[in-house]
Design a protein around this nucleic acid. Structure first.
Lengths: 228, 228
DNA sequence: TCAAAAGTGTTCAAGCTACACCCATGA
DNA sequence: TCATGGGTGTAGCTTGAACACTTTTGA
């Protein structure tokens, strides 16, 4: 038994991949070396295979194009305007991913025309990818205000000033050091490793790491960072 | 020009339709009169046509099965496990809708085997529809804590105690009348119509309506109702 | 006149905001 | 010893939580 065939549709998966270099929010884009829109910038994407679940498809695409796996990833939204793809009608399911740049090698992404852009300096993208990126940023702002996802963008050990810079980059604002520090520490989600950040020419900041157990158990405890 | 054909897939749309009867949160389900799973309960759904955008498809399905249009509706998530539909591989994009039951006639839904269940007494659903409903409730809780979407479930004119009952139903909790009233009024989103709710055998509560202009301009002003 | 639901005010505690000083480090 | 950035404390205000009394209405 099968359904009538008229409504089978091409199903694409696109990934908004975010990183953080210590100063700015970054986004990984790819220069297309195939038609349509060859030579223009786009999100990482591909078609869903008939043998894989959505999340598996998204992971496969991320892995193929960047060499990375084990990445924080979340389904964002689907896009299905009839004419969004000039070749034929295609519906795209968009995911976003958060990558800790410092600890992940993306040589493979580079070999496939991938490039990290400063989020604020990204070029115009093909199709409706700009719309996807806008939605992804808004989702990250939303989520990072309520859940501790920011850590996904930092290395395993990080300092509080680094974390603050990340939040400032996400929200495009500046925060008070003293209040930020107090608020973050009050979550009890950070463990002081006792080590110091040696890459500093002034006072060395303390390195913290996530309390994984608490992170997981409290992930859905609402409104962590509201009122940033 | 076309893409290679191997990956075209059936694309369904399913709608979680919520209502509120003054006491309980309700969900509109349909008893399937077709295979597969004939006789079992499911969400309202259908297949996306090749000539329509996603939102248009969702609206068409809602209109066909309930007779309603002009309904608050939002895309929720997509589901694509390989075996979710026993007939053939189908990806479903799920929407949720909020309906003001009192002011909308759903005779047409009834004629198509539609039935409003108390949310807490709903039967088991086909496929992965239970998962969709769970996600929809969680999304409504999330969103209603931050944005004033609750009003979509109430008639044009409503009392503050009605609104409170709605929030209590959404969160499955009880709230303090005095604090709730103060908090809601402090948003300045409600306009006192000067009328009273005549359907009461005790003190008649004041009827309010939404300040539409403020509602729209402030919709995205964060964290309205956090700390419920 | 009584029961049931609506409307309102106050107090206390917690949390947020704004702000200033001291410390560690390498140049 | 100086410039830079890290770390912490406090006072005042805002906000939320807890709680009790009065009013309106129909039975």
């Amino acid at each position: 038994m099968q359904y009538p065939s008229e409504s089978r549709i091409m199903l694409a998966i696109d990934c908004c991949i975010f990183g953080f270099d210590g100063e700015n929010l970054k986004i990984l884009l790819i220069k297309r070396n195939f038609e349509p829109e060859m030579g223009k910038w786009s999100l990482m994407g591909g078609f869903l295979k008939s043998t894989e679940d959505l999340e598996d498809g998204a992971k496969r695409i991320l892995k193929d194009l960047t060499g990375l796996d084990n990445i924080y990833m979340e389904q964002l939204n689907s896009y299905g305007n009839i004419n969004r793809d000039p070749v034929e009608r295609t519906v795209s399911i968009c995911f976003f991913a958060l990558i800790n740049i410092q600890e992940h090698d993306i040589e493979e992404a580079k070999s496939k025309n991938g490039y990290w852009f400063d989020f604020n300096k990204k070029p115009e993208l093909i199709f409706d990818h700009d719309q996807m990126v806008e939605k992804a940023l808004s989702q990250i702002r939303y989520k990072a205000a309520l859940h501790p996802i920011g850590f996904e963008l930092l290395p395993e050990k990080f300092t509080i000033p680094q974390l603050q810079k990340l939040y400032e980059a996400i929200y495009g604002t500046t925060l008070d050091r003293r209040n930020f520090s107090r608020k973050i520490l009050s979550t009890k989600l950070l463990i002081d490793t006792g080590e110091k950040n040696e890459n500093s020419s002034t006072k060395k900041a303390a390195l913290f790491k996530l309390d994984q157990a608490k992170y997981e158990s409290q992930f859905n405890a609402f409104h962590y960072f509201v009122n940033l």
